[in-house]
Design a protein around this nucleic acid. Structure first.
Length: 211
DNA sequence: TACATGATGCCCT
DNA sequence: GGGCATCATGTAG
């Protein structure tokens, strides 16, 4: 499966987070597990600029927690928040320059039953798997998609998402995004007015109530 | 060592 | 549309 897919190269991430956030829409985020492949199409992202962006974790300088954001591009930055949830980001820009993109929502593509199980969502019968209302519950939100793919800081922080050998990686399967919507970011206070949230226009799988 | 806070999601209304 | 669980991290003292 995904035989025609091309793994993204590290250079893909070696640029401004705004460019990366937009370019990541439509790509596949893939997790290899002993039980099978899990995959989702990226439909919503947010850019965090590092320097000059008060909302970014890197704003106050490099610490043990956020060191990945300051490292080489294409690495997973995972953090724990609100005592409940993990959030997955990817580092951008060259080694030494902070910046990243937060993955906010995926459209489930492969391993849907396994992802639903990880999310503790019940599958009543076979027809459930095709319902949009069901699919939307699996990975429409940063904490949700992390739980669906089993992403934790302990397992995945610092992992190279651009390596074909990695069990967590991003590939291009040739899907073309028709139209992109840009809005302010979600759930932040500082620098909340900047339009740095990117969505595939019309996708029912983005986070939030309306879609 | 203590404390405030947060790039959220769920449940209830 | 709003309350709340729950804890790692950073900063102040």
């Amino acid at each position: 499966m995904f035989a025609s897919s091309t793994p993204l190269k590290p250079v893909f991430f070696n640029r401004d987070p705004r460019q990366v956030a937009r370019a990541l829409l439509g790509k596949l985020l893939i997790r290899k597990t002993p039980r099978g492949i899990l995959a989702g199409r990226i439909v919503e992202t947010e850019a965090y600029l590092g320097e000059g962006d008060a909302a970014a974790h890197s704003a106050a300088g490099k610490t043990a927690r956020n060191a990945v954001l300051f490292g080489p591009p294409g690495r997973a930055y995972v953090y724990f928040i609100y005592g409940n949830h993990y959030c997955l980001n990817v580092s951008c820009l060259p080694d030494g320059v902070p910046g990243g993109v937060l993955f906010r929502a995926l459209e489930p593509v492969t391993g849907i039953a396994q992802m639903a199980k990880a999310r503790q969502i019940e599958v009543e019968d076979a027809t459930t798997l095709a319902k949009i209302s069901f699919l939307k519950k699996i990975s429409s939100g940063p904490g949700r998609l992390s739980e669906a793919l089993g992403v934790t800081r302990e397992r995945d922080n610092g992992k190279n998402l651009a390596s074909p050998r990695s069990d967590l990686r991003i590939v291009d399967d040739g899907y073309r995004v028709r139209r992109v919507t840009v809005t302010p970011r979600i759930g932040i206070v500082k620098s909340a007015e900047q339009p740095l949230r990117y969505l595939i226009d019309g996708s029912p799988f983005v986070s939030g109530r309306s879609g």
